[in-house]
Amino acid sequence: MLYIKCPHCGMRPQIEFSYGGDASVKRPELNKEISDQEWDNFVYNRKSLRGKHLELWQHISGCRQWIKVERDTATHEIFKTFKADEEVA
């Protein structure tokens, strides 16, 4: 079970969180014309990386904040966690 540092609450066990997928995906702006391919990429296409991956988690049984977690998908090592609005270097 992972041990995740919620930037708001501190170290918490994985059972308090729910996974939210790739954090690098940006939703296209509203009311903007976009191609099928761009929309397809946003809704469906994910890289399924091995290694360092920036992902979303929600501290669902805690502060309910969505956070960004930089995690290695192969080793589960967590390098850093960020608040939702924090810039990821």
Binding site: S18, R27, L56, R64, W66, A84, D85
Partner: peptide, 13 residues
């Protein structure tokens, strides 16, 4: 609820 929080916190803060 999670869905609304997602959009409010991440997409349209």
């Amino acid at each position: 609820l999670s869905h609304l929080e997602y959009y409010l916190q991440l997409v349209w803060p």
